[in-house]
Design a binder for these strands. Sequence first.
DNA 1: AGGAAAACTGAAATAAAATTCGGATTTTGC
DNA 2: GCAAAATCCGAATTTTATTTCAGTTTTCCT
Lengths: 205, 205
Amino acid sequence: MKLTQRQQEILDYLQSEHRRTGIMPSTREIQSHFGFASQTAAVSHLRALEKKGAITRREHKARSVMFADAADREPIVDVPIYGAIPAGYGDDSTPVADGTLSVDVRSMGIDEKSKAYALKVRGDSMIEAHILDGDHVVLEYREPRDQDIVAALIDGETTLKRFIQNNRKPFLKAENPEYPDLIPAQELLIQGVMVGLVRGAARRW
Amino acid sequence: MKLTQRQQEILDYLQSEHRRTGIMPSTREIQSHFGFASQTAAVSHLRALEKKGAITRREHKARSVMFADAADREPIVDVPIYGAIPAGYGDDSTPVADGTLSVDVRSMGIDEKSKAYALKVRGDSMIEAHILDGDHVVLEYREPRDQDIVAALIDGETTLKRFIQNNRKPFLKAENPEYPDLIPAQELLIQGVMVGLVRGAARRW
DNA sequence: AGGAAAACTGAAATAAAATTCGGATTTTGC
DNA sequence: GCAAAATCCGAATTTTATTTCAGTTTTCCT
């Protein structure tokens, strides 16, 4: 059902305030923002928006407007971006994040409970797996399976490699013929398994 | 300042509820969720979180907890995913979306005003540009420049191609030697310019 | 060991917010 | 043209939320 111009203004106000502060305006705040002399003006607009399906409200709850399309929107997780993961991670220390990447859970298939993180890819050692320099790879902490792409700690540096375990001896393989493949994976610290990739606009393709 | 385990639990609860519903829990709701016998338990936790800088509150306002890191967290845009873009788009009709992809503005470099959208890639015609079957490509409506990757309408179907304009005659080129490149771009409907890419976990790499 | 912060209980006071009732005036869609 | 919807006013009422005060117990730090 179509919204009137005034109703759209109200909805836009609610949306921009909620985006900006994270808090939904109360009817009094709507009232004063639009200069209404009565709260009823705000209330009846909310009622109209609710009837048209644009918002949902919970009775007698403060600031309880929910946007209707929020329900079918997937939850978002903020994963920290690490330039590099220091050696001793996994024990206690939290590495310093170079920023945050927000990804929606469904498109990555992330488990919300497992703390995922992102790694900025440097170099082209995984070029044949179509992972480019500058890409952000999203990883999860879990046991690697055969053919998984993993972040591993090699010589104090974190690099991406493919994890291969055809029979009994697992090893790591770079996806670039110019790189030495076949690194024995014994005793290597696997820091995460790739679950997704985000490529930004800052680069040329 | 570090949070205690309990304080982290409270913060996680606030965050997940706010993400899910868009509404911040009240102290009473915190109380009943954690099974406190007194509201004061919830209140003192909020106070502790505020003192440690994790949240901000506005006095005497209902559900007025704000997350401190919300300021430096990039805004998120929900871009609709289209399986295919029908012929006449741009005029009036809105194509049916196959879902929504939430991406943060910074990592994609999207202009919040320009209506971005996502396209699910089918086939491997852009394999040498490292775009795989099943990837989601994020596009923006704007004029293509030389070497941009664009979504173009060819024979009623939307496909990705590289836009090339070295001298005067623009044309489109597939990034796969098995595909015919060199399609004259005159009169072709360019439906968007690629600004980012999201690769999910549902596939093998 | 001793003190401070953390993690609670219980009850009561105060402020904020939603809701309701009874209207008035202006648009807008058949 | 006319009824329904939309857009308001003003005040009173009910409910929700925050805040405060006065404690108890546990944990952590030096």
